[in-house]
Design a binder for these strands. Structure first.
Lengths: 155, 155
DNA sequence: CTCTGTGCAAACTGTTTGCAGAACG
DNA sequence: CGTTCTGCAAACAGTTTGCACAGAG
């Protein structure tokens, strides 16, 4: 087992623990599917759509239905283990949330590419808002859209 | 004519000018529909979905098809006159962009209500990102999701 | 006159739902 | 054992597309 695989396993152990606690607290069942799906998600290093996850799992001969994926994404999001994004496209994009680089997104209106960036000041805004409005904030989602410099002459 | 109506007309004159410039620059045509739709949008003081806009216009006996609405929303967004949001729901939400209060959104995971807040620091983050990544940023979208204090005991 | 924009309806695509059987507690 | 979770397929909802005609340039 190489170092990378070991790290994945370590993270997954922690993530599994969080899921267990969450399921217990909510009175939900520990099903094999939930763990299998979560493990698969934590092996993906990027944003993904439900259909990509479905194909990935189908290729590995896991028998999971789309409905189950949709169901459980909701569970994972609520447990704080997965972040759900709605970029410009029609399908939702997900990414793992635990022990993952904090970052936000920058989408090019011309080429639709998604870039990532990180600015710690967003956390300060979050804290201020929490206090100001008496909200318990679980997640933030910041997107900038614009044009990367390649096609600039058009505009 | 009251003061409120006068203000709507004033704003619309400016907005119309921006659209005209944009259409000219892009070689698009000035159609009656584009102006009618834009005027209707600028009479709405809130977020709205395509279908709401469609119903509003139908009630006023304007004959507009959904396809035309979808087509032109894209034009307006690109012209910077309308902002498109994708909150948790499946349908996109729009709001007018010109001469409108700068604000962002806070969505409650329990009751799905959308609150607004404003923090000027977001603009600083935007500028930094623009410089850092060499991007020409047209629009930002910041959302916090969490729980308003009512149902706090559940979690 | 040409060609973009429009209305309409059908097609498409992502997501949700209903149901019968599997399996967690 | 009772009840939740799953897989499957059908239903649904928002959006896009194809086509014939209207109308801007």
């Amino acid at each position: 087992m190489n170092a990378k695989q070991q790290n994945i396993d370590e993270v997954f152990t922690q993530v599994k623990q969080i899921l267990d606690d969450y399921l217990k607290k909510k009175g939900l069942r520990k099903t094999l599917e939930r763990y299998t799906i979560l493990r698969e998600i934590y092996a993906i290093n990027d944003h993904f759509e439900i259909d990509e996850l479905y194909e990935r799992m189908k290729n590995k001969k896991y028998r999971v239905s789309r409905a189950t994926l949709y169901n459980n994404m909701e569970v994972f999001v609520d447990a704080g283990l997965v972040i759900k994004h709605q970029f410009g496209t029609n399908s939702a994009q997900y990414e793992r949330a635990y022990n993952y680089r904090q970052h936000d997104h920058l989408i090019c209106l011309d080429c639709n590419k998604v870039f990532e960036f990180c600015d710690p000041r967003i956390i300060q805004i979050q804290k201020t808002t929490e206090n100001l409005l008496g909200f318990n904030i679980v997640q933030h989602s910041l997107q900038f859209s614009g044009r990367c410099r390649t096609l600039e002459t058009n505009w």
